[in-house]
Amino acid sequence: MNLTIFLLALFDGISYAALVFIVALGLTLIFGVMRILNVAHGSLYAIGAYATVSLTGFFLALGFAPVFAFPLMLVSAVLVGVLLGGPIEWLLLRRIYDKPEVLQLLVTFAVFMILEDVQRLLWGTQPYFQASALQALGNVTVFGVTYTVYQLILLPLVAICLLFGLRFFLRHTVIGKLILATTEDREAAQSIGIDADRVFLFTFVVGAVLAGLGGALASPTTSILPGMGADMIVLSFAVVATAGLGQIEGAAVTALMIGLGRSFAVYVWPEVAVLVPYLIMVLVLLVRPEGLFGSPVARKI
């Protein structure tokens, strides 16, 4: 393998890992706090991408500059979080927290399937492309390899900021502490007057915004088409499970492992590239069923 191929695989892996991590972060936050594995997270990711493409297309047609695509990504993510995440928690999940996990999984899976069809209904089955954000930032050349600034610098930067931002938010702010307290003991939290329902709603909306943001950020780098949500939920679940459910820092490490594993496989042994993330997951879980960073008893987030 020569240096060029190595760097390409490295950069592919890093930018891909950054995207998967952002989505996995929301998934693991929701699981860590609410103990719900939200399959519909994949749809929120896809709708975040679709919304960004539509909004960007609309505003660029009105004559706005391409950099305007960036604030629109944020807008899309927040819209997905508030308009979809909010009602999902409020109308559905709130009723099933004390139900068996299988039922919870089925409910979020049902939401996922409904939202998949909603996407087809709204955006059809034709792929969409919208790369203005990618082009707006231009390219950078590293050791003779030219790569987009968007994928090589912006995506990893956003991922790192979100990782440290969420860590800081949970451990050092009042509301973060109230979330952690509710996570640790819901009844005790209520007995000191914490509105656990609102804490859960807020957490779910934040998680949903992260899914939407993942989709928004992914939109310039890929074609937007039906099924992208399913791919992403499976992959981000692999990342979260490999790290240990609820492990935020761990998810960053496993996202990188899985992202790099996949991208190097693409260059070295393309036939198994799709398999690599799951091979990594299976190997890790065979040895450590609680995940690389999970502990079998205590739950920490």
């Binding site: 938010f169 702010t173 009042v174 509301i175 007057g193 914490i194």
Partner: peptide, 14 residues
């Protein structure tokens, strides 16, 4: 945490 719960969240990011 108890005091924060009592006072409500005037400045949640503090």
């Amino acid at each position: 945490i108890s005091a924060a719960a009592r006072e409500g969240l005037r400045n949640p990011l503090q």
